[in-house]
Design a protein around this nucleic acid. Structure first.
Lengths: 153, 153
DNA sequence: CATATCGTAACTTTTTAAGTTACAAATGTG
DNA sequence: CACATTTGTAACTTAAAAAGTTACGATATG
């Protein structure tokens, strides 16, 4: 199948939601993601159940943040999507009685487990708000240079 | 698609190859893996090009180890398979000009990169020979108990 | 020469996220 | 209340890549 881009997409959407004061419709989000509103609703539904966003039906409705981005870790979003399988790599026949096959599977399973834990730790380290810090810093630096009269290189 | 089980399968095969003095045919390997000889040849072809195994055509031919398992790391096998994509997770539209989307992608890309490096480090830590050490140790322990006259619990 | 076996190309199947279509339910507007 | 807007959800199709399959040429043994 295609690689699962739901986490990347949802982070993208959350960053946009923070910048909007009114609810954003699935139609608008669909345009941001170059996809259709129904897929947006399906994917964002997980975030709603996880208490990350809220949705309002009807005229003037749409999607809003349920809490500040500083209170949402990347892991929160990942888990809101159902903690989808991380790896394209897997084991071979796990019901085999061959001891050699079991040994091979065990080694890979262990490596995947460790890598998975490592990845989740990376996701826990930062909130969604942190994602735009590098950008905010660049903007600030630009302002500083202009204020001090230095010309950009 | 299905999860990629080639690494697990190849490790399994290498462990069997070490136990055989004569070449093992693709047909025999196919039975170990519950698949067909052609797929075996396709997958093992990568290991041959990487110098991990050798193949002999014709009557009495088949597959042999090209060097001892102590000289083959799990990473060697993984790379012999073409270093297949590790993750089922990916980025969203990487050509987008939206800065927020770029920020989201960057964060995920970084986390995946780190997790990938971590995984590769895990694969580098052990040779294929190490996979059966736990089993060999258990066998040794069993022998020790029997030799010392203790009854197994 | 007959048989066994690898090497490789071409094709089908499987799996699951993504994508699509459709419509009921709910909410705001006039 | 009638109507347009929007979410919620089910059912279906599409896409991509490993797995699986089929076929056949090349090579080595006896």
């Amino acid at each position: 199948m295609r690689t699962d881009s739901r986490l990347a997409r949802m982070l993208h959407v959350l960053l946009h939601l923070e910048q909007a004061k009114d609810p954003i419709t699935s139609e608008q989000i669909g345009q941001m993601l170059a996809t259709n509103p129904s897929l947006v609703r399906r994917t964002m539904g997980g975030l709603r159940k996880a208490g990350i966003v809220t949705s309002v039906k009807g005229h003037g409705g749409g999607w809003c943040l349920a809490k500040p981005l500083t209170q949402i870790t990347l892991l929160d979003v990942y888990e809101a999507l159902g903690s989808p399988g991380l790896f394209a790599l897997g084991l071979s026949n796990v019901t085999s009685t061959c001891l050699l096959e079991q040994s091979a599977n065990k080694a890979i399973d262990s490596a995947l487990d460790h890598a998975s834990a490592f990845f989740r730790a990376e996701l826990t380290k930062q909130t969604v708000a942190d994602l735009v810090l590098p950008h905010a810093q660049k903007v600030q630096e630009l302002k500083d240079r202009q204020a001090s009269g230095h010309k950009p290189v």
